[in-house]
């Protein structure tokens, strides 16, 4: 224990003013003075309750700073698990193997782009057996829009199983019932419920440590309208984002939030120059909530996904398809470059 480091003025402890004054009056100047003091005697000296004395001493015991060395972080990063999207191009855009655990990924798209389909596909894929290259985990689906259709999940699960078992004897195969019983669905009807659910999700995740993917479809629905107090909205959203990032880190799971698109009108000079663009909902500041942000769009007859924000991956655009079997590659498409490698300036 590096004692010298512990020498810290009492006045810098997180205490209320009265308690700080009492400590000062009783002659305590630095944390070293408090080192060998027992809680009950401190309480007596300061004429405060034992609880309050404990709260002072507790602050000394705690290691004030928890840090991770970059080496550990890198090792951890290399071991990070992924959940595949079943679309190679999509996976490669996200770094090779799919949606990363420990991260928050946001997928934005107008209605009909397949956000829900991607969500359901991920719920299924999170459960692929480790022997088949998966994580053999569970999934949480927070449905705020009522778009989780279980019949469709069955279809996707069947197609996924079929693809996995193709050409192999299906001894360690799973049943559809098993698949379905590992997807935990929460149906949310208002933003209050959404906040309440996120608040208590810790307990659920502790009880279900195998959860590998957490889908929120969509994060925006209940937060789009109906807020007289935009400050409240920003605060709630930020609080939620904070929780989600923590879940991703602490429980090592992939958090995927779906977001809607909204029309933003920009005023040009003169009324003729007004132009409107489609942007992800919830405003600019919400863009900071996620680690990776993907925007889905049509380009004539093909769906495209564009990675527009990522700390470690190259921005790129890839085509994908939604078929009866779920999310798939567009037939004939070959990814041109490995997006993991950033282009270095020459």
């Amino acid at each position: 224990m590096p004692m010298k480091q512990m020498q810290r003025p009492v006045s810098t402890l997180n205490l209320d003013q009265a308690l700080r004054t009492r400590l000062h009056n009783a002659g305590y100047r630095t944390t070293a003075d408090l080192k060998d003091v027992a809680a009950d005697s401190l309480a007596q000296q300061l004429k405060v309750s034992i609880d309050q004395a404990m709260s002072v001493l507790k602050q000394l015991k705690r290691d004030p700073l928890v840090s991770v060395s970059a080496l550990t972080a890198l090792t951890r990063e290399r071991q990070r698990s992924f959940v595949t999207t079943s679309c190679k191009a999509f996976d490669e855009m996200l770094g090779g193997s799919g949606v990363p655990a420990g991260r928050v990924t946001e997928i934005c798209g107008a209605p009909g782009m397949g956000k829900t389909q991607i969500g359901m596909q991920l719920c299924v894929n999170a459960q692929i057996l480790s022997s088949q290259g998966g994580e053999h985990g569970e999934a949480i689906y927070i449905d705020t829009e009522g778009s989780f259709i279980v019949e469709r999940v069955v279809e996707i699960a069947e197609a996924t199983l079929e693809a996995l078992n193709a050409g192999k004897d299906s001894q360690d195969s799973q049943t559809i019932e098993q698949f379905l019983s590992r997807i935990h669905v929460f149906r949310i009807h208002s933003y209050v419920e959404q906040v309440a659910l996120i608040n208590q999700l810790d307990d659920f995740l502790t009880e279900h440590p195998k959860v590998k993917v957490l889908i929120i479809d969509s994060i925006a629905f209940h937060f789009r309208q109906n807020f007289a107090d935009m400050g409240l909205r920003t605060r709630l959203l930020n609080g939620m984002a904070q929780h989600l990032r923590r879940f991703a880190e602490e429980f090592d799971l992939a958090v995927v939030m779906m977001n809607q698109m909204t029309t933003r009108v920009t005023r040009g000079q003169g009324s003729d120059n007004d132009s409107s663009v489609l942007v992800p909902a919830l405003g600019d500041s919400w863009g900071h909530a996620c680690t990776n942000r993907i925007i889905l769009s049509w380009q004539y007859e093909v769906r495209y996904a564009a990675l527009v924000k990522s700390p470690n991956l190259q921005e790129c655009t890839i085509p994908y398809a939604i078929t009866s079997k779920g999310v798939r590659d567009v037939p004939g498409h070959r990814p041109a470059t490995n997006p993991r490698k950033r282009l270095l300036p020459t």
Partner: peptide
């Protein structure tokens, strides 16, 4: 307090697995 209140306002039994949903559909 927030956590406790959350669990009372939105109790966890509202959660269902997809299998339960499928049986009910």
């Amino acid at each position: 307090l927030l956590r406790q209140l959350s669990s009372q306002l939105f109790s966890a039994p509202k959660h269902q697995t997809a299998q339960e949903l499928f049986m009910r559909s």
